[in-house]
Design a protein around this nucleic acid. Structure first.
Lengths: 173, 173
DNA sequence: GCTGAAAACCCTTTGGT
DNA sequence: ACCAAAGGGTTTTCAGC
């Protein structure tokens, strides 16, 4: 990972773009008191540097008829890596699975699943998830209400970043 | 919720915009075999209709130093609505909490929390989450690996949508 | 070397056919 | 539904600091 340095202005741009990815450079310039050229240059630098990964249109799940959201905790058979690899590839290919993390604790994975209704959700679980290779235990919680869901990541820590701590190092050569 | 009708082309546009929110109308037009004007009109219709909620720049968490992701299951004291309201408002105000859903099952809420490192994460949990009003039980799982995380919602169900079932209705007046 | 103004290019959108 | 024209937006260049 290349060290790309960002300043106060870059952080303001990132904050704005996380909320309004389609903001114009002129509008951003007004807000942040920078010329459109600067905004343009800074944005492409952060795109190139891998800080901005992509742009996306965010859809309203309810408006497209995705009324069911659920969380599944999955445990796999204790086998080698091949099992989990197969599982992870299978999960990644399911469009209904919008997030999946391997976790510490009782379960091996937690995943977020969306579906149009309970019938469809049940189908996804029965026909897709439960047939995934090596699955031994499964616990699902249906979401009753979305309290908060955002793609906006916090940036506060970047300004107040602690100086890198000095450590001993081993002479490598 | 107003019924806004989408066709095959609209779905193609939505699919593309979910992945590349900054695609130009001309580029989309080439892909979908529609004129830029059509694309433009269809997009504004879907924005107006509330299908497209917003646009966002998606950042790479690792690139901005957010290395810890965790899931918390929270149980609240059995009190009236006021408790959960206060809790939900507090949660919504925490930038580290990127998602929170109330759920069926053992816990009342599941939430997704991000932090720069374990120290910072611990601080968020101790100083912010655990002090939220009315919290009685808390279980956290640290994410070891992100298997999948996407803002792309499935659209397949829209085409194959079942015809609305006829039902009896009560004469309301 | 970096900044900002301006120009050129491209995209978008609207109105007419 | 398409096309054309007008109105903006973005980006690059160039002059100045």
């Amino acid at each position: 990972m290349q060290q790309i340095v960002v300043d106060k202005f870059d952080l303001q741009i990132l904050d704005a773009l996380q909320r309004r990815g389609n903001a114009t450079n002129s509008a951003l310039g007004e807000e942040i008191h920078l010329s459109p050229s600067q905004i343009s240059r800074r944005i492409s630098r952060m795109e190139q540097g891998g800080i901005i990964a992509s742009y996306a249109a965010l859809l309203d799940p309810a408006a497209i008829g995705l009324d069911v959201s659920a969380f599944a905790q999955v445990t796999l058979e204790r086998h080698g890596e091949s099992r989990s690899d197969a599982f992870e590839r299978a999960v990644a290919a399911l469009p209904e699975v919008v997030a999946c993390f391997s976790v510490s604790g009782d379960a091996d994975y937690v995943m977020h699943i969306v579906a149009p209704d309970l019938v469809a959700f049940s189908n996804v679980m029965m026909k897709r998830i439960m047939r995934l290779p090596g699955l031994t235990h499964l616990k699902t919680n249906i979401a009753l209400k979305t309290v908060k869901q955002t793609s906006v990541l916090p940036l506060d820590h970047i300004m107040h970043a602690p100086q890198p701590r000095r450590r001993m190092q081993f002479a490598s050569a």
